[in-house]
Structure formats: structure tokens, C-alpha cells
Amino acid sequence: MRVMDAVAVHGVEKRFGGVQALRGVSLTIPQGSSFGLIGPNGAGKTTLIKILLGITLKSAGDVTVLGGDPESVGVRRKVGYLPERLTLPPAFTPVQFLRGVARVKRLPSNLREQRIVEMLELVGLERTAWTRKCGKFSKGMKQRTGLAAAMLGDPALLILDEPTDGIDPLGRAEIRDAILAAKARGATIFLNSHLLAETERVCDHVAIMHQGRVVQTGGMQQLCAQGAFRVRFAPEHGDKADAVALGFAEQPDGWWHFQAEDAASFNAALAQAIGKGLVAIEVTQRMRDLEQVLAETVRGQAGPKPPAATAGGAA
């Protein structure tokens, strides 16, 4: 059975005066997945996020969020959002701010305080949130408050725009754990972060945006795989010449590399090697990190190309 899409975007365009910010963006994100949107500055990532939330109005195309119109109040009740640069009411404490959010999200009044405390504990603000005003907060503390607000009410879709920006490494780990906890309870995560290591750790699907287009999309494994596999053979078994004849290349570190389009081709070659008496004791796939994937993808985009199709493997 096909999983329902949390987000479906088809041919979305956005013009700001004479500037074309989005040029026919199409992608789908299945419910329950964690999706990372990456790309250089000015690629259109934040514009796309704002269109998904109805904050910015699209010029053309179709957008469906959780099966409905992103401007629908019913849909928004199921969406949590943390903007890139959150401004909090300076005279409020986080608790006062979260109470207002809870009222607007229509959380049952008897559960509000309990849920607010839970969220504050989740983002590590339980000590300061009752007395300290948001106007005195550091950027990281504001982000934590915003994340607590976004996660209040257990939204089905959590859209986070640079959630760990300005947060120290230990804090980042806490925020990541909070996001993964939301994912574990079944929420769909939509993460836009310049910290690609965060995206790698949290997301299972990624789209790369460049110049207003989705230029690459797919599963994390699929995008980062280099088409090369590594195998270590037991030295006392078989003949190395057989491995070389099958296309395996010996490396100085004792590993053998095999170039293949996919895992099936590699498995076929490995089966032949084993048939000739070689014994494989360790097999891995050579992976690029997301930074390499982004750099190579953006460098490869010399001119305009048609928009990429749905999130590879995800749709």
C-alpha cells in the first residue's frame, strides 16, 4: 500500500517582481519520513518552505500538505514550524509564549501546562523558562523556545528551518534528539539546515535545490553512494588473479574495490569470486558525505535543467 504523502509539490513557481525564486519545483515527501532540503544560499529553500506553510503565496503550481490546502486552518493545526530567525515577544517568558501558542493550537486546557512542561524539558529549557524573559535570551535559547513551540501539540509534520543555528555542539545533540523523538512517534520531519552533518544524521531522504529548482533528490543512501563497493577477502583462500579478472582492484590497505552501478551487479561479481574459491570476510559500500554530494551536484548544474521528479525512492 502506498504511503500517503505529507507534502506534494508540483510545478511550483514563485516570482518576486522580476526575480524568479522558484522555477517549477516538484517533490513529494511520504508521511513518516525525515526529509532534508539542502542547497546553497539563494537556492529558494526558505521560499519553498514558506509556500508550504502559506506564508508566501505561490505564483503557479500545486501544493498539498497533509492532504489539504496549506492555508487551511485544519492543516496548519497539524503542522509545527520553526522559522530560520525566530523573533519572540521580548516581554514574555517562554512559558507565557508557549501558553499563547497552546491556546491558538487549541490544546485541551487541562493538558496545556503538562504539555508545555514536557516540551520545555525536551528542549532543555525547564529551568529558565518560568522566570527569564525571551528578550534576554541568546540565539540558541530562542531557537530552543521556538522548537518547543513548533513541537507543541505533537504535529504530524514538523518543518524546521535551521533549527540548530546558533546552538552549541552539546545543545545541537539535544535538539537532534528532540527531532528524532518526534520522528520516532511518527511525525514527518522537513529539515532545512546548512549543517549537513545534522541532515545526514536526521534525514533519510534529501533534495538539493539550486537556482530555484530541485536538481537532485533521493534516499540518503542512494545519493551518497559512489557506485563503488569495497570487499576484504580472506588472504589464505583463493587466487588473487581470479579477483582481478572479475574486475576487483586491490588497494594498498588490503581492501578490494569494485565499480558497479548498483548492488545487484556487485553481488553478481562477488558470487563469481566466491565460486572461484575466494572468501569475502567484510563488505562495505563507499559513500560520499552530503557536502561532497552537494558540491558535485551544484557544480554539475551549469545551465538550467528541467525540474527533478519526485523524491527518489520516497515517492
Binding site: 502559506g54 496548519r76 514550524y81 522559522p83 523573533t87 519572540l88 491558538v104 487549541r106
Partner: peptide
């Protein structure tokens, strides 16, 4: 003006409210 400040209005507009 505070409610419509950058970073605040985006958050408010994403809440379940017209």
C-alpha cells in the same frame, strides 16, 4: 509592528489561524 516583525510574523502565519 512587533507582531509583524520578521521572524515573528512567519511563526504566527504558520499557526492554525487565518
Amino acid at each position: 509592528a512587533d507582531l509583524l516583525a520578521p521572524g515573528r510574523v512567519e511563526f504566527l502565519l504558520a499557526l492554525p489561524i487565518r
